[in-house]
């Protein structure tokens, strides 16, 4: 269980990263925290020709709070975000969901953008990004663009990123006054891939519910508020629309039921916790 050979570039600035991506495209992979990539390398599921280590690029290392969103650079580790003292105040969903990502020993290395790039359908960060309507900032030698999270995730571990693009940062909207947020997750064990993960935002009597672990990507939908009797019907329709599937750990039926039950519970909790 050892990786196949590859070259390694420890980039010291952004241009160097974009250069390698420009020249080698799909044969290059970004190495940030490595917590998703290294297992794939070890199992030889992935065989890139070159890895570009971006952790020493100063311009990618910061978290900026512009008052409406946290802009998190590609080299920011999950643990670093988790350790921000004002995190729960700035965005409760992040504070609630980060501890669910793997384990402390992997969050210490894993990056926020790396998890977004990996686009695992049951990963927490992509779900939050979609539920909160965040943005992915992409840069290549050709262009710079910002993609809405909802459009970024295109399927099972598939994203809108072009082969020569680097995810430079993601922007996660911070809490808005009067809005409530809640996160819930069910996995077989703590730290496992979510069977169903729910992220809810309640604002002005309306809800938005994001679901991870069910469809081939995280999906968020606007919903009636918790007091609206149309909510159950909407949850039921959502549960069906996600096309849940059976796997080793849960049945499609179970997932649908959790979307309904846990989805409701999460929305209710968000309504209770309104800031």
């Amino acid at each position: 269980m050892k990786p196949a050979p590859f070259d390694y570039v420890r980039a010291s600035d952004g241009a160097e990263v974009l250069d390698v991506l420009h020249r080698q495209g799909a044969d290059a992979r970004i190495l940030a925290g490595g917590q998703s990539l290294l297992p794939m390398l070890n199992m030889r599921l992935a065989r890139p020709a070159v890895l570009v280590d971006i952790m020493h690029v100063p311009s990618l290392q910061s978290i900026a709070d512009d008052g409406t969103a946290l802009r998190i650079g590609a080299a920011v580790r999950q643990a670093e975000l988790e350790a921000r003292p004002d995190l729960a105040r700035r965005q409760k969903l992040l504070a609630a969901a980060l501890p669910w990502i793997g384990h402390a020993q992997t969050r210490s290395r894993g990056t926020v953008c790396g998890s977004v790039a990996h686009a695992d359908p049951s990963a927490e960060l992509p779900l939050l990004l979609v539920a909160l309507g965040g943005t992915v900032h992409l840069r290549s030698r050709r262009r710079h663009r910002a993609v809405e999270a909802g459009a970024f995730f295109t399927g099972m571990m598939a994203t809108d990123r072009a082969d020569d693009e680097l995810i430079e940062a993601v922007s996660i909207p911070t809490a808005r006054p009067g809005a409530g947020y809640a996160f819930r997750e069910i996995g077989r064990r703590h730290g496992d891939f979510a069977i169903v993960a729910c992220a809810a935002v309640v604002e002005n009597g309306r809800a938005r519910l994001g679901i991870g672990g069910v469809a081939d990507r995280p999906v968020a939908q606007d919903m009636p508020g918790p007091d609206d009797e149309a909510l159950d019907e909407a949850l039921d329709a959502f549960a069906w629309a996600l096309e849940a599937r059976d796997d080793l750990h849960a049945t499609a039926r179970y997932r649908r039921e959790l979307v309904r039950r846990l989805g409701r519970a999460t929305i209710e909790e968000a309504a209770r916790c309104r800031a």
């Binding site: 059976d246 796997d247 750990h249 849960a250 049945t251 039926r253 179970y254 039921e257």
Partner: peptide
């Protein structure tokens, strides 16, 4: 498995009319 036990807890589920039942693989299949 919670999903297996849940079968004894959850009420019957009816699929919405506009969604024809597809052949569904069994868990693990």
């Amino acid at each position: 498995l919670p999903a297996r036990l849940a079968e004894h807890l959850f009420a019957a589920e009816t699929s919405p009319p506009d969604r024809p039942a597809r052949p569904v693989a069994k868990p693990g299949e």
